[in-house]
Design a protein around this nucleic acid. Structure first.
Length: 288
DNA sequence: AAGACGAAAGTGGTTGA
DNA sequence: TCAACAACTTTCGTCTT
């Protein structure tokens, strides 16, 4: 299923799978029985990242003595000093890089799960690095910062995912994600375009297998609704979903309220309320 | 049997004193 | 910091297809 509405090719079927195998080369838990094999799931970054240098990083002790306790010559002392310095530097670099590797692998996982285009992933990675450079990463779980960077990237490129969707896949709370999103925007002076209901139309209509005709009609409806001033303060996903619902009825591609509410991530009641407002204000005749 | 409808009570976030 | 508030959710009984 390809969505080329914005010049992005998001392939939800093959792209997903290929991406996953390309980016995440970590091993899965070994399984022994057929039952295990059925149940096994991907378990995140391979453990080797976490213990990558365990036992390998060496400290060079202070005190300029050799193994037998003799004082070192001046020449040796200078050499040991230099070694110590480089030891420190490379260790710091390794920690940085290791975290970065883990963060990027988490990002890849999220992106595959959500079917997000590659360009947005790159954007998210850049935002993540900038956040890191600005010292925003201190004291915060890497997963949260990654998720916030991804959400920010989606918003700036106007291919929004909801906070809920990203929070769920990243296994963090919506509240935390929202907080860090705002923090990123504020501290890094990123300008975010307003979230418009229309931004959701192409994704939702694909998900509902609705034709382009319906999607176009839905966008018209949203434009009219905006002019009538009945959209302010309403959840954009609910508006987009309802517009598709009505457009579907008008174009004879009806979907049930349940389906509509599911893709719009609102309740049927909300769809009904929006529906009523649309019909009352937009001179729509939906009686067959 | 499934879908649509709407009332009523509850929830979490924003706003304004 | 607190209360008021609008939007949205959950739940549930009733009507329609």
């Amino acid at each position: 299923v390809c969505d080329t509405a914005r010049g992005e090719t998001t392939c939800n079927n093959c792209g997903l799978v290929i991406e996953e195998y390309m980016v995440d080369m970590g091993p899965e838990w070994r399984t022994y029985t057929a039952e295990d094999r059925k149940n096994r799931s991907r378990v995140g970054s391979p453990i080797s990242y976490a213990i990558h240098d365990k036992g390998l990083s060496t400290m060079i002790c202070r005190g300029n003595r050799d193994a037998k306790g003799r004082k070192l010559s001046l020449r040796r002392r200078i050499e040991v000093y230099r070694l110590r310095k480089w030891q420190k530097r490379t260790r710091i670099r390794n920690i940085r890089e290791r975290t970065l590797v883990r963060a990027l692998s988490a990002l890849n996982r999220l992106v595959s799960q959500l079917g997000i285009p590659r360009s947005i992933k790159e954007e998210a990675a850049i935002i993540y690095r900038r956040a890191w450079d600005n010292g925003l990463s201190r004291g915060i779980a890497m997963e949260i910062l990654v998720a916030a960077a991804l959400y920010t990237a989606c918003r700036t490129r106007r291919i929004p995912r909801t906070l809920d969707e990203i929070a769920e896949k990243a296994h963090i709370s919506k509240k935390q994600l929202g907080q860090w999103f705002r923090r990123l925007v504020r501290k890094m002076k990123i300008s975010i375009p307003l979230c418009e209901p229309m931004d959701f139309i192409s994704r939702f209509s694909t998900e509902l297998k609705l034709s382009g005709k319906v999607a176009g009609r839905a966008i018209e409806l949203l434009e009219d609704a905006k002019e009538e001033g009945i959209t302010t303060g309403k959840v954009p996903t609910g508006l987009a979903a309802t517009a598709l619902y009505i457009a579907g009825i008008l174009e004879n591609e009806r979907r049930t309220q349940r389906e509509i509410s599911r893709v719009g991530q609102v309740t049927e009641v909300t769809v009904r309320n929006r529906y009523k407002e649309f019909v009352e204000n937009l001179e729509i005749e939906v009686m067959p």
